[in-house]
Amino acid sequence: MPEGKIMKALSGFYYVKDEEKVIQCRGRGVFRKQKLTPLVGDYVEYQAENDQEGYILDLKSRKNELVRPPIANIDQAVLVFSAIEPDFSTSLLDRFLVLVESHDIDPVICISKMDLLNDAQTEKINRFAEDYRKIGYPVILSSAKWEDGMDQLKPWLEDQVTVFAGQSGVGKSSILNALNPALELKTDAISNSLGRGKHTTRHVELIGIGSGFVADTPGFSALEFTELEVDQLPLCFPEMVKASEDCKFRGCLHLNEPKCAVKEYVENGEIMEYRYQHYQQFHDEIKSRKPRY
Rank of each mutant, 00 (worst) to 15 (best):
I6A: 08
S11E: 05
Y14V: 10
K17H: 04
K17E: 13
E20F: 06
E20D: 15
K21F: 09
V22T: 15
I23G: 10
Q24R: 15
R28Q: 12
V30G: 01
F31N: 10
R32F: 12
K35P: 01
K35H: 11
T37C: 03
P38L: 06
L39Y: 09
E45V: 02
E49Y: 14
D51K: 07
Q52G: 04
E53P: 00
G54H: 03
Y55F: 14
I56R: 12
L57Q: 09
K60C: 03
S61Q: 13
R62K: 11
K63N: 13
V67A: 14
V67H: 13
R68Y: 12
I71L: 13
A72G: 05
D75M: 05
L79K: 01
V80L: 15
S82N: 05
E85N: 14
P86M: 11
F96P: 11
L97K: 07
V98T: 14
V100P: 06
S102E: 02
S102C: 03
H103F: 11
D106L: 14
P107H: 04
V108S: 07
C110D: 00
C110W: 11
C110Y: 14
I111G: 01
M114P: 02
M114Y: 08
D115W: 08
Q121H: 07
T122I: 07
E123N: 10
F128T: 04
F128R: 01
A129M: 09
E130F: 03
Y132K: 01
Y132D: 05
Y137D: 06
V139P: 06
E147A: 01
D151A: 14
K154W: 09
W156A: 09
L157S: 10
Q160T: 06
T162G: 02
A165C: 15
Q167G: 10
S168N: 10
K172P: 07
S173D: 00
I175P: 01
L176F: 06
N177C: 00
L179A: 05
L179R: 05
N180L: 10
P181M: 04
A182P: 00
A182L: 08
S193W: 00
R196V: 14
G197T: 01
T201C: 05
T201P: 02
I207G: 02
S211W: 03
G212P: 06
G212D: 02
F213S: 02
D216M: 15
D216F: 06
D216P: 03
L223Y: 08
F225E: 05
F225D: 03
F225C: 05
T226S: 13
T226M: 07
C236G: 05
M240H: 13
V241D: 07
V241T: 13
K242T: 12
A243R: 03
C247W: 06
F249Y: 15
R250N: 11
G251Q: 06
H254P: 06
E257N: 08
P258F: 12
K259N: 15
C260H: 09
V262C: 12
K263D: 00
E264R: 09
G269E: 10
E270L: 13
M272S: 09
E273Q: 12
Y276L: 04
Y276F: 14
Q277K: 14
Q277I: 12
F282H: 08
I286A: 08
K287L: 15
R292F: 11
